[in-house]
């Protein structure tokens, strides 16, 4: 049999404790979480993510841009708030960077899917939140130059994530270089084999120089089946034209190139023909090279 009205006094004690503890430093952290926003601006934590921005490496904003205008994010964006137009050089060829990259942050829902799908770590989430603008429509449509922020800034707002991404990029680059090297060696070996074969053929015709142009070409297609030795030469020459064709599935292509790489490293001289269509694999590798070149510029 408890005291009459003890429930009320228990409740009063709880509120009194809550009231009193806010006046002591010990309790304030837990009991008074309010941040006086405009004066004390440490509302942004390491976990704050709201709208995406584009990263550039180094000093040059446009030249250091990681984005290659592959348009994956544009297609994946659920509210379709990204709009990309690829840049062309004076000859009408596509350059691997966007001419227009617009994000309508009034539409953006901050889902971070664009960040997830980007194979080049070119778009990441920002922690900036003071986006009040005078114009509802125009000012909230962020263009490429407004979206570009340096890698240093990214390191400042999300250090761990930025380091992870940098490490990832470095690993990718190293892997690509190793692959390139392997590819070159393979190409050289293939060229040597071809040269030897042609030499055998030409010994009767007395024309040993035929092998030389192939050996000097570093961008020869390694994944090409070696049955088409004769075709390989012409493909290597057509390659610049192939580069300009819009890339359809670079993400998938990357995976395929990985497969192709595994196969080529496992098998001897890429004799095993990959099940994938040759063209997609080729374009995927083109993409990889594009990324490498983009980094090389910076």
């Amino acid at each position: 049999m408890d005291l009459l009205g003890s429930g009320i006094f228990k409740g009063m004690a709880v509120t009194l404790k809550n009231f009193a503890m806010t006046y002591f430093d010990r309790g304030r952290k837990e009991r008074l979480p309010t941040v006086q926003y405009p004066e004390a601006g440490d509302t942004v934590t390491l976990f704050t993510r709201n709208f995406p921005f584009l990263i550039y490496d180094g000093e040059e904003e446009v030249d250091g841009m990681r984005c290659v205008a592959c348009q994956i994010c544009e297609r994946e964006c659920p509210p379709a708030c990204i709009y990309i137009v690829k840049e062309k050089d004076e000859n009408g060829k596509f350059v691997k960077r966007p001419k227009v990259f617009d994000i309508d942050v009034s539409v953006c829902m901050g889902c971070q899917i664009c960040v997830e799908v980007c194979p080049f770590d070119a778009i990441v989430m920002d922690s900036e939140f003071e986006y009040s603008k005078e114009d509802r429509f125009g000012d909230l449509l962020f263009n490429r130059d407004e979206l570009l922020k340096s890698n240093d800034y990214y390191h400042k707002i999300h250090p761990e994530e930025a380091q992870a991404r940098d490490a990832n990029l470095a690993a990718k680059k190293a892997a690509d270089e190793a692959k390139k090297k392997a590819r070159e060696e393979k190409a050289a070996a293939a060229a040597a084999a071809k040269a030897a074969a042609e030499k055998e053929a030409s010994e009767k015709k007395d024309s040993p120089e035929a092998s030389e142009p192939v050996a000097e070409e570093p961008k020869a297609e390694p994944a090409a089946p070696s049955e088409n030795h004769a075709k390989a030469e012409s493909e290597a020459k057509e390659k610049p034209a192939a580069e300009e064709t819009p890339v359809e599935e670079p993400a998938a292509a990357t995976d395929e190139t990985e497969d192709a790489k595994e196969e080529s490293s496992g098998g001897s001289e890429g004799k095993e023909t990959s099940e994938e269509p040759e063209e997609t694999a080729g374009s995927g590798e083109d993409d990889e090279k594009k990324a490498e070149e983009g980094e090389g510029v910076s």
């Binding site: 509120t15 809550n18 009231f19 806010t22 006046y23 009991r31 008074l32 979480p33 309010t34 006086q36």
Partner: peptide
């Protein structure tokens, strides 16, 4: 003020 402090506000 009192209600605010009771409710852990300022």
């Amino acid at each position: 003020k009192g209600l605010a402090r009771i409710q852990n506000r300022i």
